[in-house]
Amino acid sequence: MYVKLNGCKIYYEIHGNKEGETIFFIHGGPGMSDCRGDVHAFQKLGDIYQLVFLDNRGSGRSETVPPYTHEQWVDDIDALRSHLGVEKIHILGGSYGGYLTLEYVLRYPSKVKSVILRDTAASSKYNYISEEKALKSNLPGINKEMLDRLFNGQVRSNEEFKEMIKAILPLYTVEFDEKAAEEKLNNIFFRYETHNYAFRVNKQHYDITDRLKEIEAPVLITVGIHDWVTPVECSDELAAGIKNNTYIKFENSGHSPHVEENDKYLKLVRKFLNENGALSHIK
Rank of each mutant, 00 (worst) to 15 (best):
V3A: 11
K9F: 07
Y12H: 01
G16I: 08
N17P: 09
N17S: 12
K18H: 15
T22K: 03
F25Y: 03
F25W: 04
S33P: 04
D34S: 13
G37H: 09
G37M: 13
D38Y: 05
V39C: 13
D55H: 05
S59R: 02
D76C: 00
I77L: 15
H83E: 15
V86F: 00
E87C: 08
L92K: 08
G93L: 10
G94I: 05
Y96I: 14
Y96W: 14
G98E: 03
L100Y: 02
Y104Q: 03
K111G: 01
K113R: 09
R118F: 12
R118H: 14
D119T: 07
A122L: 12
S124W: 13
S130Y: 09
K136H: 10
S137V: 08
P140V: 01
L147N: 12
G153Y: 02
E159P: 00
F161G: 03
L169E: 09
E175M: 14
D177V: 12
A180E: 12
E183G: 05
L185W: 07
N186W: 02
N186G: 04
I188K: 00
I188L: 08
I188Q: 05
F189W: 13
R191L: 05
Y192E: 10
H195Y: 14
A198K: 07
R200S: 07
Y206W: 11
L212A: 11
L212S: 09
E216V: 12
E216G: 14
A217Q: 09
L220K: 04
C234E: 05
L238F: 12
G241I: 00
Y247D: 00
S253I: 13
H255G: 06
H255A: 04
E260P: 10
D263Y: 14
K264F: 01
L266R: 01
N274V: 01
I282L: 10
I282C: 00
